[in-house]
């Protein structure tokens, strides 16, 4: 009987950990959450090893360790927050372990994103506002908003189709470069440099970069370097997309 409880605990803890890593949490938070779940379920001396591509966990006194691979990675901070809330509720005995597992499955299947039009408008506003903040170029605000919106739209659609983040970033930034140069050529904008700087801002790999620094500082060197590589690849993809267009003109 205790064995069943232990299996359910490991399953739930690994499930929670996988959801958190898949959606862009740092490694220290994941191992902290998993050990808390284990401690609150009555196994204070569990061992857990978390990396960005997989989680291993064992309970002292039991024979086998369990492995949970993490295959896909995206960014959804709301899911991390919800797993965090569920873990808190479990610690306060508001939900049982079985309910916890049930809600995790539910959470995993239904993602609650902002509506697509709001994401598009946000991408446009990020581009426009940051272009003005960085470059103080007020006349190009509107055209930057529009090109940033189109760039994000292309990135989003390609990411859905191809599921290769670097490729989508490369193509989206290339399109942004072409549109910015065209806008200046047809006198819709005044400075192509400023427009491009604003428009690539929604594509900036903010989450992998911040997490890379946090992971390395926390001592999770393997995951930190892997995340740093991810961020660097994104930056190179964006940069080479722009560089290709600038060289071609």
């Amino acid at each position: 009987m205790t064995n069943d409880q232990g299996h359910l605990m490991i399953k739930t803890a690994l499930h929670a950990g996988r959801i958190m890593i898949e959606n862009g949490s740092e490694v220290a938070r994941v191992s902290d959450t998993i050990s808390r779940i284990a401690a609150n379920a009555g196994y204070p001396d569990s061992k857990v090893y978390v990396t960005i591509t997989g989680i291993m966990m064992s309970v002292s006194g039991e024979e086998n360790a369990q492995i949970e691979p993490v295959v896909s990675r995206s960014i959804d901070l709301e899911k991390i927050t919800l797993v965090n809330d569920l873990s808190r509720h479990f610690a306060e005995h508001k939900i049982t372990l079985a309910q916890f597992e049930e809600r995790l499955t539910d959470l995993d299947q239904h993602s609650r994103y902002f509506p697509f039009w709001l994401q598009l408008v946000s991408a446009g506003l990020v581009s426009g506002t940051l272009e003005v903040v960085f470059r103080h170029n007020y006349p190009d605000f509107l055209v930057t908003c529009i090109i940033g919106l189109i760039g994000w739209w292309i990135f989003y659609v390609l990411n859905r189709l191809a599921k290769i983040r670097f490729l989508s970033e490369f193509l989206a930034s290339a399109v942004i470069g072409v549109l910015a140069l065209l806008a200046v050529k047809y006198h819709l904008g005044t400075n192509a440099d400023d427009i491009i700087i604003g428009c690539v801002m929604p594509l900036v790999p903010g989450v992998p970069l911040t997490n890379a620094v946090r992971d390395i500082l926390a001592g999770d060197l393997v995951s930190g370097i892997a995340r740093g590589m991810e961020a660097l690849m994104s930056a190179i993809a964006i940069g080479s997309g722009i560089a290709m267009i600038l060289q071609a003109v």
Binding site: L77, E78, T129, L130, V132, V133, M201
Partner: peptide, 21 residues
């Protein structure tokens, strides 16, 4: 002042792209 207002908008909208609660 204009920069600060724009920074606020830019920060919140970037949060929306990351699906911040």
């Amino acid at each position: 002042f204009a920069d600060l207002v724009l920074t606020y908008i830019g920060t919140v909208t970037f949060g929306i792209l990351l699906n911040v609660p």
